[in-house]
């Protein structure tokens, strides 16, 4: 078992192998993820029951929750890749960070935006300096710093190392930010508003929500593969294997 994992890990570090395998996987993941998103959206928007307290406005949950949860998962996965890059100097980890950071930033933005649109009718305001909103905003800023750092170095390797350092410092600091925002919040924020105020969700609403979360995760997987392939093809455009591959097509 360990041997298989080790083999897989070593193969993962190779650009040609990844390029070949991802090319085969992408169509399936793409079709599956997009159809899941379409199905769960239609289910959530038209067929799931109306919420007793919030009315129809709660239906934005089918976009908000997947986006916010995936944005955090992407950050943690990026920081694992950063550690891998700094420890084992695996080139693929640098490609992973560079490709996934814009996706993560986009989903954080979608999460913030959908949260604001949801907050307007339910809380009566677009933005609340609530602990969770603030830490999501900080997450967004970290993503922006990672993306901004990519362009400041001429050499690819230096840029990847710099970005890995930032990502790891960010992941060390993120729990501190979260906790301190919690403490700050308790002093200023009235307890009347809370995101977790809803009681447990009924299964008719839960199933489309889970489907949409799964769909968005697969969609991130899909776009991640696409971005990584694009990044590999820019980095390796002058290499022999890539020329051979593109002349065959």
């Amino acid at each position: 078992m360990f041997q298989i994992l080790k083999n897989f890990y070593h193969k993962l570090g190779s650009y040609p192998w990844f390029y070949k395998i991802s090319g085969k996987v992408i169509p399936f993941v793409g079709v599956f993820s997009i159809s899941l998103i379409v199905i769960s959206s239609i289910w959530g928007l038209f067929f799931s029951p109306t919420d007793a307290v919030q009315g129809d406005v709660y239906r934005i949950i089918y976009f908000h929750v997947p986006a916010v949860s995936v944005s955090q998962v992407i950050y943690y996965s990026i920081s694992v890749a950063a550690a891998v890059f700094l420890i084992w100097r695996m080139k693929m980890a640098g490609v992973y960070i560079k490709s996934l950071a814009p996706i993560g930033a986009a989903f954080t933005f979608i999460g913030l935006l959908s949260g604001a649109i949801w907050g307007q009718p339910t809380w009566g305001t677009w933005w609340v300096w609530d602990a969770r909103l603030t830490s999501t905003l900080v997450l967004f800023l970290f993503y922006l710093a990672i993306i901004g750092m990519q362009s400041t170095f001429a050499s690819r390797k230096s840029a990847d190392t710099a970005v890995s350092i930032i990502t790891l410092i960010g992941v060390v600091n993120l729990p501190i930010v979260k906790k301190s925002v919690d403490w700050w919040n308790t002093l200023h924020q009235p307890a009347s508003i809370s995101i977790s105020g809803e009681s447990s969700i009924s299964s008719e609403m839960l199933i489309p929500l889970l489907l949409s979360i799964l769909g968005v995760y697969l969609f991130v997987f899909f776009t991640g593969l696409l971005f990584m392939r694009a990044e590999i093809s820019t980095r390796e455009q002058n290499k022999e294997w890539f020329k051979k591959l593109s002349s065959n097509n």
Partner: peptide, 20 residues
Amino acid sequence: LSLGKNSITGPALMLPLSLP
């Protein structure tokens, strides 16, 4: 990290970190 470059990256990195 931002040696020799006069970019916004330095402050953009530093200020969110200083939040706590």
